[in-house]
Amino acid sequence: MANILIVGDGAIGLLLSHFLSASNHVTVLTRKASTNTRFYSRGNNASKKINAQFISLNQLNKNNEFDLVLFTVKAFQVPDAFAQVKPFLPKGCSVVLSHNGMGNVDEINDQLNSTQALYFLTTSMAGYKSNLYIVQHTGEGQSVVGGCNSLALQNNEVTAEALKAVPNIKWTDNIHQLRFEKLLVNIAINPLSALNNIKNGELRSPKYNAIIFSALNEACNIAKAQGLDIPLIKALNTAYKIMELTCDNYSSMQQDVVHNRTTEIAAICGYIRQQGKLYNIKTPYNNELLAKIEAKKSVV
């Protein structure tokens, strides 16, 4: 049984805390009232209490010997969240990042010591919070985890044992490839669903085909420049399959825009724009989606 700290109690953080607490001791770091119980709900089944301890930052102390620290905050929140938790990280613990988009891995790895392993977990599990304290599990999905530094690539037994309670989880030796493939799905679904205030399945309408094709084509050109082999047809097939599997779901970005929250667009289309500048590859469609989401957020 591992001692796990989950940083962030958004939908994915609560879903993971529900599953991981079945065979581990789980503590969840939250900015909300730490005394409230959280619940997991699936379909018409009765809600279940999440068997985890919820604490605030001032309740963290250096006596907490966490084996695994899992960051489930949004991409733009990772640097601040890590800075707050870093003083409490045991020397031999493992750190796992999990968010949409790219970025953060190199920056966090530079701040770890030689005995701290770094992993990234990407998941297509679907869920949303129906209120501050209940997470609704709305869709199955595969979770993939892989090492991001030499220690994680060499020895992952403790982390693998701790995470095995996550449904449909598998390991990869090339997490960067998997992250980029997930990025392509996010590019196809998140901005357009947010801009048009529609469910994922509605993106299969022919009127969205051209922009999805063009935005993914730009991203696949970036992938090729990075040495990754992700054909456009594969990216399109995967994106449309996810649209079908999550047809009745709203994307996380749609939810962020509706609730006037900061989105992860900078780590998605913004990443493609940044890499386009680096490799001298034009990315007008991703640039446009980035600008429209940023404008949408600013006027809601």
Rank of each mutant, 00 (worst) to 15 (best):
L290I: 01
T283F: 01
T138L: 07
F54N: 02
K224T: 12
E264Q: 09
T262Q: 11
Y119L: 10
G10I: 01
A194G: 15
L15A: 13
H137L: 07
G147Y: 07
Y240N: 14
I198E: 10
I272L: 00
N156C: 14
N61G: 08
S298G: 14
I187P: 00
A165P: 13
H99E: 12
T72Q: 05
G147K: 03
F66E: 12
N200E: 05
Q142R: 09
Y128A: 07
C148T: 05
V258G: 04
V73K: 03
E244Q: 09
N155L: 04
P87Q: 03
N156Y: 11
A52P: 08
V299E: 15
A210K: 14
N186G: 11
D106K: 13
K49A: 13
P231Y: 02
K49I: 09
S98T: 10
F213C: 00
N113V: 11
N24G: 13
N24L: 10
E140C: 03
S94N: 14
A219G: 10
C220R: 00
K129C: 15
S193L: 01
S23N: 15
Q254M: 09
Q255C: 11
F39W: 06
I222H: 00
I108C: 05
A295N: 15
F39Q: 12
N286R: 03
D256S: 14
N168P: 04
K49F: 01
F39S: 13
V135Y: 01
M253K: 09
P87R: 02
I134N: 15
A291P: 01
E218W: 00
A22H: 06
L29H: 10
G146D: 14
A215V: 00
V299L: 11
K199C: 12
V96I: 14
P191V: 05
F120Q: 04
V145H: 01
I272E: 03
A162C: 10
E264T: 10
I6W: 02
T172N: 13
N287R: 02
